[in-house]
Amino acid sequence: MSRVVVTGRIPETALEKLRAEHEVDAWEGPESIGREELLRRVAGADAVVSLLTERIDAELLDAAGPQLKVVANVAVGYDNIDVPACTERGVVATNTPGVLTEATADIALGLILSVTRRLGEGERLIRSGQAWKWGMFFLLGSSLQGKTLGVVGMGGIGQATARRAKAFGMEIVYQSRREIDPVLADEPGARRVELDELLATSDIVSLHCPYGPATHHLIGAEQLAAMKSSAYLINTARGPIVDEAALASALRDGQIAGAGLDVFENEPSVHPGLVELENVVLVPHLGSATVETRTAMAMLAADNTLAVLSDEQPPAPIN
């Protein structure tokens, strides 16, 4: 039996699957595991099942030792993993793509509706106990029909979001590093454009690109200034893709109309300039937060782990 270290709480069904074949050391504390405790626990591990809150770098890989075979991230994004360091040490890195596509697209559309129809403002008003009365100009929002959604990163989640927006009567443009499958492109009626054109023409810009050096602060002061003053920014990808300080200034100064954010630069901290604004909807990284999706993510991570430990090809390798 191999030794599998799980760095945080995951659904019990996935743990049971791992325990059926291997020894499992799972962190079950209410808070994230501390760095020193993590480094101590991974010593001698054959596999590490990691959450996105844990940094998997050269220090951790060396602390685990040369017998480590696999790091299975319970997330589709893997900016918390030093993939070259894994490759250098012969460690297979895996992720969980596909299984969270629909849930994250649902959150993206939910943020779009919340910010354009001012649902957050309305709920805060009622909960505050303030008096209110229906009126022709009371909390007016913006409709989606006939508007343009600009999707930055037309992978699975971007395409799923585009399909949902199309059902609401929106036109779709997208920016992607590569042309997507024509069948998938035709389904939402999408048109590929460069980022500059997307920013200038979209009524809503929704971010679905992976995070890395090339996309750090992809949306900053210059890009926000290029957007329509009536436009909205949605981010369900990774926080550092957006310069939060620049976004707070743009929202405060009316450069754009609003924003909906599920992810943040320095989670769990949120830029204080965003918290004080009414025209931004803020939710705590709930993109994949359904029972069904989180279970599927954990089960895929378990499948990845078991495959590598059996010297088989994992379902979702990164390197």
Rank of each mutant, 00 (worst) to 15 (best):
S2T: 13
R3S: 10
V6L: 14
T7N: 03
P11Y: 10
E16A: 15
L18T: 10
R19M: 09
R19F: 02
V24Q: 08
D25G: 05
A26V: 10
E28L: 15
G34R: 06
R35H: 10
E36W: 01
E37W: 02
L38R: 01
A43H: 12
A45E: 12
V48W: 05
I56W: 04
L60H: 01
A64D: 11
L68T: 13
N73E: 09
V74R: 05
I81W: 07
I81V: 15
C86I: 04
T87Y: 03
R89P: 08
G90Q: 09
A93K: 05
P97S: 09
V99T: 11
A103H: 01
I107A: 00
A108F: 05
A108R: 00
L111N: 01
S114K: 01
T116A: 01
E121M: 04
E121C: 03
E121T: 00
E123R: 08
E123N: 08
L125C: 04
S128K: 03
W134Q: 10
G135K: 12
F137P: 00
F138M: 11
S143D: 15
G153I: 09
G153W: 07
Q159V: 13
A165Y: 07
K166S: 14
K166G: 13
K166C: 07
K166D: 07
S176R: 11
S176H: 14
V183L: 14
R191C: 11
R191H: 15
T201A: 09
T201V: 14
S202W: 02
D203G: 02
C209G: 08
G212Y: 12
A214L: 14
T215Y: 06
H217I: 11
L218T: 09
G220S: 13
L224P: 00
L224T: 06
L224M: 08
K228P: 00
S229A: 12
T236Y: 06
I241V: 15
D243E: 11
A246I: 07
A250Q: 06
A250M: 06
G254N: 09
I256T: 02
I256H: 03
I256K: 03
A257P: 08
L261C: 12
V263I: 07
V263E: 05
N266A: 15
G273M: 13
V275A: 13
V275H: 04
L277E: 07
V280P: 03
V281Q: 03
L282E: 05
V283H: 00
G287P: 00
E292W: 07
L300C: 07
L300E: 01
A301C: 14
V308C: 10
V308N: 05
V308D: 08
D311P: 03
D311R: 12
E312I: 03
Q313I: 12
P315V: 02
